[in-house]
Design a protein around this nucleic acid. Structure first.
Lengths: 264, 264
DNA sequence: GGCGGAGTTATGTATAGACATTATTCCATG
DNA sequence: CATGGAATAATGTCTATACATAACTCCGCC
């Protein structure tokens, strides 16, 4: 009935991490509880990428020994990580780093693919441009990404049933993701590649409405000046910028839909 | 630097509640754990409005007795409610239903007020129209809201530093919120009134880009046909529709910004 | 070989008790 | 009357233990 994209997994529990953060090497005075220290220790190992999705985290009895505490305490820490979606547990087998949620349409384009297919549409993708270049000195976003090095620019077009669905211009930090230099983006979009290679990232989104310029008019097949939805997203991994993407959707054909609740 | 509105507290942990739900009168077989039953019991009393923000929930020793279980078990249940933001605790005093978060700009207009003031802008509000009417039979949204009765329509304009900021057309279910019939919306917007009177609601959002029509051109002071951001929101309380709102922002002046994270 | 059951292991839930912390009440003393 | 301090009552954390449950391993019997 309301249809269109889903805006899911949009949570801001940790959004402060984008500005300030406590450097993690167990500082903060003394009044940190034990289960919190255990949780934060595991959490930072997961978020930093040391423990990757699918990896087993230490058994509860190992953590008991390591922190010389009771099982209830480590259980509380791990249970909290399960609640936050970072960990899944399997009886007899152990506890494992969870796969990052893939239903975050708002977070990345490739889910448009799943979304479209769910609604019986054909998804297709076309690479328009791909090159490595220096950041523009006038664009702070590009300088942040480059961090002294170069950036990879990937421009592409996503289509639904053969009709243009979204235009995407993406910048990737070669500093943060060096092996993106040799990745193949001619078949699948960079978004899905990044999701596989850089899980557990934070993102900042900006949605606005803009008129179609000459380029969009041609690529998206819309009248000149017609309203388009512009979605900009900057993504970080472990405090360092990873990618910036600018996606343009024809405004009359698409919208972002999401369900929210006060209750978390 | 990125400025603009904040898209906060946007979480979808419970978004399935909008479609299916388990009616709550403790069904589901037998394999429901005790702390879950305790938590759900309190949760439904809070979400239904029986326990309002500021109310004290039973002491842990009372819950112990009521469910004849140990304190650790009720503690686990209440701790989970704290994690979800439904409850706050004060030593010696007890545990209380939390105030609903007010930083949810995306969820309601009145926070634009706070947002603007924070950035040194003057916020003003003007009521354009207000009347009670029957739902249009051709609009499913209005029929859902009315539930056999009438609906209240409130049209208003929000301004920043004297310049139009957003146009708002709101429908309120007189069935779900009967005392809105006599509420005064000439000074403060209906959004903030509703937040005070119907806390703990769920909402479904839709963001799209549309061209300004003649009415918006005049009210928002933008060129004819220029892109506008349209935010539609339907809100439920305890499974029943409360309000539908349609907010139009000049696209060149505003955007929605939010920070997200995979990690919850 | 394969099938089934016993044992093993790690998580899942719950208990009873201990001590700490915080904030309130209330009383005694100056 | 004010003020300091003890008693009190709630949550905050942690322990040691128990039993349940799921899933895997291994071994023996047909």
């Amino acid at each position: 009935m309301w249809g269109a994209n889903q805006l899911r997994r949009a949570s801001t529990r940790h959004f402060t991490a984008l500005s300030v953060e406590p450097t993690d090497n167990e500082p903060q005075g003394k009044n940190v509880t034990l289960h919190e220290r255990i949780r934060k220790g595991l959490e930072s190992r997961i978020l930093s990428g040391e423990l990757k999705p699918g990896d087993r985290i230490p058994f509860e009895h190992e953590l008991m020994e390591q922190f010389s505490c009771s099982r209830m305490t480590v259980n509380k820490a791990v249970t909290e990580l399960v609640n936050r979606g970072l960990v899944t547990r399997r009886r007899r087998a152990g506890s494992f780093v969870a796969e990052p949620p893939s239903d975050s349409t708002m977070l990345d384009i490739p889910d448009i693919q799943a979304d479209l297919q769910q609604r019986g549409k054909a998804y297709s993708y076309r690479l328009l441009k791909r090159h490595v270049r220096a950041p523009l000195k006038t664009r702070q976003v590009e300088l942040d990404l480059a961090r002294g090095g170069e950036i990879l620019e990937v421009v592409s077009l996503h289509s639904s049933d053969g009709k243009p669905y979204a235009h995407e211009c993406r910048l990737i930090s070669l500093e943060a993701v060096p092996n993106s230099r040799t990745a193949d983006f001619s078949v699948s979009p960079p978004g899905s590649w990044l999701l596989d290679h850089v899980p557990w990232s934070q993102a900042e989104h900006r949605i606005s409405a803009i008129p179609a310029d000459a380029e969009m008019t041609a690529l998206l097949d819309v009248p000149d000046g017609s309203p388009c939805l512009l979605l900009e997203r900057r993504t970080w991994h472990d405090q360092s910028p990873v990618t910036y993407v600018r996606q343009t959707f024809p405004g009359d054909r698409h919208s972002f839909v999401g369900a929210f609740s006060h209750t978390t």
